[in-house]
C-alpha cells in the first residue's frame, strides 16, 4: 500500500474524495485517508455510464471485509466513464488511490460547485482538525 499523500494538483471534498479537473470533465476517487480508514477493499458497487451524480449524494459503495462505505459525489454531472477494472481488482483503490484506483469520470453540470472544494493544504488541515 502506498504511503500517505495528498497531491497538490487535486481538489478535495469533505467526504474524503479527490477531484482531478480536466476541462469540463472531472475524475473522482477517494483519498489516501479514506482508503486507509476502510481497510482492504474487496468490492466496488458503482453506477453506470450515462447515470447522473449529484454533489453531496452517494453514487456507489465500497466494501471492505467488515465495513461498507458510501462514496459521495463531490460535484454534479453525467458519468462518461467508470473504472471497470475495479470490478475485478477493487484493491487498486488501496494500492494506487490517485492513479489506477480512480473511480468515475464525470461531465460537470455546475461549475459553481467547484467553489466548495478544498486544495491539498486545506484538506490536510481539515483532516488534522477532524
Amino acid at each position: 500500500m502506498a504511503a500517505e499523500s495528498y497531491p497538490q494538483d487535486l481538489k478535495y471534498y469533505k467526504e474524503h474524495d479527490w477531484v482531478r479537473l480536466e476541462g469540463d470533465e472531472a475524475v473522482f476517487g477517494i483519498t489516501w485517508f479514506a482508503q486507509d480508514a476502510l481497510g482492504e477493499i474487496v468490492y466496488a458497487d458503482l453506477p453506470d455510464v450515462g447515470d447522473t451524480v449529484t454533489a453531496g449524494a452517494p453514487y456507489g459503495e465500497l466494501e471492505s471485509v467488515k465495513a461498507v462505505s458510501d462514496v459521495f459525489a463531490p460535484l454534479s454531472g453525467e458519468i462518461t466513464d467508470v473504472n471497470a477494472v475495479l470490478e475485478d481488482e477493487p484493491q487498486l483503490v488501496n494500492e494506487d488511490c490517485y492513479g489506477e484506483g480512480w473511480i468515475l469520470r464525470v461531465r460537470l453540470s455546475d461549475q459553481a460547485e467547484l467553489e466548495s472544494l478544498m486544495d491539498a493544504e486545506a484538506y490536510q488541515k481539515f483532516l488534522a482538525e477532524a
Binding site: 468490492y43 466494501e63 471492505s64 471485509v65 467488515k66 465495513a67 461498507v68
Partner: peptide, 12 residues
C-alpha cells in the same frame, strides 16, 4: 460477503 448482513450493514 458479510457486508450483506445486519451486523455490518444494520438497517441496510
Amino acid at each position: 460477503l458479510q457486508t450483506r448482513e445486519q451486523h455490518i450493514r444494520r438497517e441496510k
